[in-house]
């Protein structure tokens, strides 16, 4: 019974760690489903985190409790604009998409820290005064067990992330826009023949991935790190990329994978509280998420098929 209690107590933390990953992985799904590989998720998160934090610091006095929400929006928009660079390179200039993504990652950190130094005179911003706070959802948190697990002491951003994932699934699989987007990623020539504008669809998908990764980065900054420095986003974008592939390029799969990573990360933080894990050295719990992911990929998940045209620039008229 004690185990179950501890498990329940751990759930808010899982949700809290997962939210940035869900947003970002969802962005990755959109981009890759349209046939554009996005290694740059990490950099897009950096831009989201940076702009969210800076906006929050300067506007907290005027906007009050509304600040974090607008910061989130600013992070998403800034990152969406930044992702245009990847779109231009990958779609219009037929760049190697992996290379362009690597450039995005480097540029984001360079630019973020450069601007931080220009604005604050040092490599790290001040801490924000208007972060997101944990809340208990009225009514729902009174449900026994489930309420405690999912609706008590969590952030609203987590629920938004889950809603976004479901919406993402709906858009990709139940609307004609989604069908077009997937068609462009599987067989751009066939899509083109059917009158779908491949370039336009891919631009939209990449910008969407920028917006979502920006949301992810801003969420991380406004709930977990609460300030920005060059090391604020260190690998979360790559974890999100792993979640995209782990989730087999499906919005709900990515959601599940993000939860799994969040769970594993929380386990390494609070695992020592569990009786049956108490004697396991912290080191094993720390590497557990990564080892579990590899095992899962090797055994349970097996072959993950990427969208067919993923990574290939589309050149009109070529076969």
């Amino acid at each position: 019974m004690q185990f179950i209690d501890q498990f329940i107590a751990m759930m808010p933390m899982v949700l809290f760690y997962s939210a940035p990953l869900i947003f970002t992985a969802l962005g990755g799904v959109f981009s890759e489903r349209s046939g554009v590989v996005n290694i740059g998720l990490e950099g897009l998160m950096v831009i989201g985190a940076f702009s969210g934090i800076v906006f929050n610091i300067f506007m907290a006095d005027t906007l009050g409790a509304f600040t974090p929400w607008l910061s989130l929006l600013v992070g998403a928009v800034a990152s969406g604009i930044f992702s245009l660079m990847h779109a231009v390179a990958a779609v219009s200039f037929r760049a190697n998409q992996v290379v362009s993504g690597v450039a995005i990652n480097m540029l984001a950190v360079g630019l973020g820290v450069f601007l931080t130094r220009e604005i604050f005179g040092r490599g790290q911003t001040d801490s924000i005064t208007e972060p997101f706070y944990t809340t208990s959802v009225p009514v729902l948190s009174d449900i026994p067990i489930l309420g405690e697990m999912f609706f008590d002491g969590t952030y609203y951003t987590t629920f938004i992330a889950i809603i976004f994932a479901v919406a993402g699934w709906y858009v990709l699989y139940k609307t004609s826009f989604g069908l077009r987007l997937r068609a462009v990623g599987e067989h751009p020539m066939a899509a083109d023949t059917n009158g779908i504008n491949v370039t336009k669809m891919r631009y939209i998908a990449v910008i969407l991935s920028g917006v979502l990764a920006g949301l992810g980065g801003a969420t991380y900054a406004l709930t977990i790190s609460l300030s920005f420095a060059g090391s604020t986003i260190s690998g979360q974008g790559f974890m999100a990329l792993a979640a995209v592939i782990f989730g087999k390029w499906h919005p709900l799969g990515a959601l599940g994978a993000a939860f799994f990573f969040g769970f594993a990360q929380s386990l390494s933080v609070v695992g020592a509280n569990f009786d049956f894990l108490a004697n396991v050295p912290g080191f094993y719990l720390t590497i557990a998420p990564y080892v579990l992911t590899i095992l899962a990929l090797a055994g349970l998940i097996g072959r993950a098929e990427a969208p067919k045209a993923n990574g290939d620039p589309y050149i009109k008229g070529s076969r």
């Binding site: 690597v102 950190v109 360079g110 630019l111 820290v113």
Partner: peptide, 18 residues
Amino acid sequence: PAELVEIVIAMIIFFVAA
């Protein structure tokens, strides 16, 4: 700021890609 060099390197990679 020293980070200017990071921007230069990133742009070099970007131009190679494009």
